[in-house]
Each structure stands twice: as structure tokens, then as C-alpha cells.
């Protein structure tokens, strides 16, 4: 049975700035799409193609904490350099995915990569926040730097395009990301008239974002930058591209626990949030210049 579509949400009217380097449209949480409704996903910000222009000043977000969840950064265009309080650093290039598990607490900062900043050019990114179940909220912070070579690829029939499997699996190809709860995250690149079919369990909360192009999904038209939210009924997803298109498909098994969010902290109770803030204030997440 085809997975039923609950709603197709257009791009929000106004972008917001995250620091001075990310001009994002926020899709989750928004309107009827609460963090509970789309659990385990907590937040999705999309920076559609935008050229900030050449700059000697490195645009980005200065030191900030995270605790209790994971951040997943998917680079489509442009490059981002990141640094953290555990001494890690790296650059996320187009095609790469950075999967950061904040766990018990980390400080990090992210800026446009120096050379990219100097030249300017198109910049396109998605940042997705994925919740951790209560039992894993205190794991030690760590990264999975998933480069293009690591990411599983499915070649679609009739030269229809490719599906880059970041997490989960489709058509016997598994993604490299290790997740704490069952999650599928597919970067789908369709050629004109390209077709992709997959099956996602009906208990997964499932959505897709049309990054570029226009598609027909389960009989309904989804235009560029629209967000398709599926009901928890049916399994099959069939999509066909009208033109060259890029689609991000996300699905996950809901985490049946309370969600209490305060800015960069996501815990299960208000008391845990207060403790997280105090831990951050007292330097328990470490230090980063």
C-alpha cells in the first residue's frame, strides 16, 4: 500500500539567520509538525542555494553547546569548517555528511571554510537534529565524518539517477551512519523522468524535502522547497522527477519519551534541562576559544 500523504507544506515565507553564515528556512518544528509528531527528528533547517559573496571575515556560528541529541549536517554546495571542545576539527565538503552525537554535552563552532569564504559562491546545506533516547543521552560526544566515498549508492533503473544512502537501507544498500534508533536518511538525485521506489515501515515518522526540482510523489505534485509529511499508513513511496531533482527523504521510528527542549539542549524533563544549563555554565562540556 502506498504511504498516505498527510500534508505538503510550502517553503516558509521568511528565512532566519543562524549566526551570520546560515540563511535558513525552518521546516521542523513548525505549525502542525511538532517535535513529538515527527520524532525522532527535532529540527530541520534548510539553507537553499545562496551566495554570501567573497569575505575575509569567516561567516558562521561561534561557540555554542549541544546536549542530548545529534546534529546532522548535509552539505550540498559550499564548505563548512567545524571545531569542538574535544579537540576535533574538520571540513564538510559538498556531498559530505557530518553526524555529530552531542550526547552528554559538547561545545562547537562552525564557519564557512576559509578558501570558500574568500571566493564566495553558492552555498546550500541542511541541518537536521535527531533525538537520542533517554538511555543514550549521556553517551560521550563523538563524530561520524561521512564522506562521499563512504556513502552507499543505489543506481536507479534507466539512468534515472542515484540514491545516496546516508543512514538505513534501501534496495539492499545500507548507509554508513550508525544511529541509536532506526532511521533512514536518503539523498536522492533524480534525472528527468527518473523514478525511485522504496518501502518504509508504516510506524516510522516519514517526510521528504524537495531540495531542487519538482517531483510527483505517490500521485501528488511536490514543488521545489516543499516539505511532504506522510501519515503513518502504508509503506510504499514512489517518486518521479519532472526535471533534474534532489530530494532528502527522512524516516525514523518514534522515540516514545517526553521531549523537553530549551535552545541547544533536548532532554526528557525540565529538571534535566536546568541541570544541563548549569553543567554548561560550570564548564562541564569543556572549553573552546
Amino acid at each position: 500500500m502506498n504511504k498516505l500523504i498527510e500534508n505538503i507544506v510550502a517553503k516558509p515565507i521568511q528565512p532566519g539567520m543562524v549566526g551570520d553564515g546560515f540563511r535558513v528556512f525552518n521546516y521542523i518544528p513548525r505549525g502542525g509538525i511538532s517535535q513529538q509528531r515527527i520524532s525522532p527528528f527535532l529540527m530541520l533547517d534548510f539553507n537553499p542555494t545562496f551566495d554570501f559573496g567573497p569575505s575575509d571575515h569567516l561567516r558562521g556560528v561561534d561557540v555554542h553547546p549541544h546536549k542530548g541529541f545529534e546534529t546532522v549536517t548535509i552539505a550540498y554546495k559550499g564548505s563548512v569548517a567545524h571545531y569542538d571542545s574535544a579537540g576535533n576539527s574538520g571540513v564538510i565538503h559538498p556531498g559530505d555528511v557530518q553526524w555529530m552525537t552531542a550526547g552528554k554535552g559538547i561545545l562547537h563552532k562552525e564557519f564557512h571554510e576559509e578558501n570558500f569564504s574568500k571566493t564566495g559562491g553558492p552555498f546550500e546545506m541542511v541541518q537536521l537534529w535527531v533525538n537520542l533516547p533517554k538511555k543514550d543521552k549521556e553517551v560521550a560526544p563523538h563524530y561520524q565524518a561521512l564522506t562521499t566515498d563512504d556513502i552507499g549508492q543505489v543506481a536507479l533503473a534507466n539512468k534515472g539517477g542515484i540514491v545516496r544512502v546516508i543512514a538505513g537501507s534501501t534496495q539492499d544498500v545500507s548507509g554508513p551512519a550508525k544511529t541509536y534508533t532506526p532511521i533512514n536518511l536518503f539523498d536522492i538525485r533524480l534525472n528527468p523522468a527518473g523514478v525511485f521506489q522504496t518501502s518504509i515501515p508504516s510506524n516510522h515518522h516519514t517526510a521528504l524535502l524537495v531540495i531542487e526540482g519538482n517531483i510527483i510523489v505517490n500521485g501528488q505534485s511536490a514543488s521545489q522547497h516543499s516539505f511532504v509529511l506522510f501519515k503513518n499508513e502504508g509503506e510504499e513511496i514512489n517518486m518521479q522527477a519532472d526535471e533534474t531533482s534532489i530530494v532528502l527523504l527522512l524516516s525514523g521510528e518514534p522515540i516514545p519519551e517526553p521531549i523537553v527542549s530549551y535552545g541547544p539542549f533536548v532532554m526528557n524533563t525540565e529538571a534535566e534541562i536546568r541541570e544541563a544549563i548549569m553543567d554548561f555554565n560550570l564548564g562541564k562540556f569543556g572549553y573552546l576559544e
Binding site: 571542545s85 552528554k104 554535552g105 560521550a140 560550570l282 564548564g283 562541564k284 562540556f285 569543556g286 572549553y287
Partner: peptide, 8 residues
Amino acid sequence: ALAKKNSY
């Protein structure tokens, strides 16, 4: 200094 003293 606090981070040095308190960090996990």
C-alpha cells in the same frame, strides 16, 4: 579554569 576543573 572552570572547564579544566569540571569538564567530564
